[in-house]
């Protein structure tokens, strides 16, 4: 892997954000709106049930921030690819000496930057307005965020491959794929409330183990090594499968002559 190329590609995306404040607002606006909505819901539940009873509802605010880590990570990959499609620059990249791993690594880097901005803002807002301090979760935050970041990358690679295969008509997949996962991964409620057969599917997602682990820490049960191990193992499998799917899709679109079409249509 050539880090000079990765650095150049990451800088290119950052130039884009510094020149276009609307793009930056997108990283801030939607997460803030979501936090405010769930924040008021939490307040309402506290009012109805009494703070002591409703304390566990701060899960929701944790869930909002954790979900955004995964969503921004996925978006970093998929939207970076779409930026090249939208600006008709994709061919310049695909006929340049850029390896797929370098291209993806730059998208991962962009995802990291997006997450850093979003989390910083959500952390400050949730602390100031809803008395929820993310840092109270403690050092467990690092493995939790790391796991969500990796799973976001895996979904991003998968969504990118689908867009590459089906063209711009499929660009809504960049937003749809994570929301297909959201109800299954138990962001705002425990896995135990799902039907038995659905729990198996939920627990096959690495992110579910992170959200379960987060709720455990917030309920005072401590860090669950079991959930962490499952998340790590499942992330490894998801990244491997996503990588293979991307590689296979790239070969397929080359064979079908679709790459140039996606890039120029």
């Amino acid at each position: 892997m050539n880090f000079r190329i990765v650095f150049a590609l990451v800088c290119r995306y950052l130039f884009l954000y510094t020149r276009n404040w609307v793009r930056l607002a997108e990283v801030i606006f939607w997460p803030t709106m979501e936090l405010v909505t769930w924040g008021f819901l939490t307040r309402y539940l506290e009012g109805r049930m009494g703070v002591a009873e409703a304390g566990p509802f701060t899960w929701m605010l944790g869930g909002v921030i954790f979900w955004d880590v995964m969503f921004r990570s996925q978006q970093g990959v998929a939207i970076s690819f779409l930026e090249d499609v939208w600006t008709r620059n994709l061919l310049n990249i695909f006929v340049a000496p850029v390896r797929p791993i370098e291209y993806l690594a730059s998208a991962f880097g962009v995802g990291l930057v997006r997450i850093a901005i979003t989390v910083l803002i959500l952390w400050a807002l949730s602390w100031i307005f809803f008395s929820f301090n993310l840092l109270d979760i403690g050092p467990s935050l690092v493995p939790f965020f790391g796991s969500l970041l990796l799973f976001g990358w895996a979904i991003g690679i998968f969504a990118t491959a689908l867009i590459m295969r089906f063209g711009q008509a499929a660009e809504s997949l960049a937003w749809a794929v994570p929301f297909l996962i959201q109800p299954l991964t138990a962001v705002y409620y425990p896995v135990s409330i799902m039907p038995g057969w659905l729990q198996w599917i939920a627990l096959a997602l690495p992110s579910t183990h992170v959200f379960e682990g987060m709720r455990g820490v917030m309920a005072g049960a401590g860090f669950s090594w079991s959930h962490f191990a499952w998340a790590a193992l499942l992330n490894a499998v998801c990244l491997l499968l996503a990588g293979l799917f991307y590689h296979w899709t790239l070969s397929t679109v080359r064979a079908r002559g679709l790459l140039a079409k996606v890039a120029t249509n």
Partner: peptide
């Protein structure tokens, strides 16, 4: 039929 990113200088 190919462009460079329009938002960049």
């Amino acid at each position: 039929y190919v462009s460079l990113p329009g938002n960049l200088t």
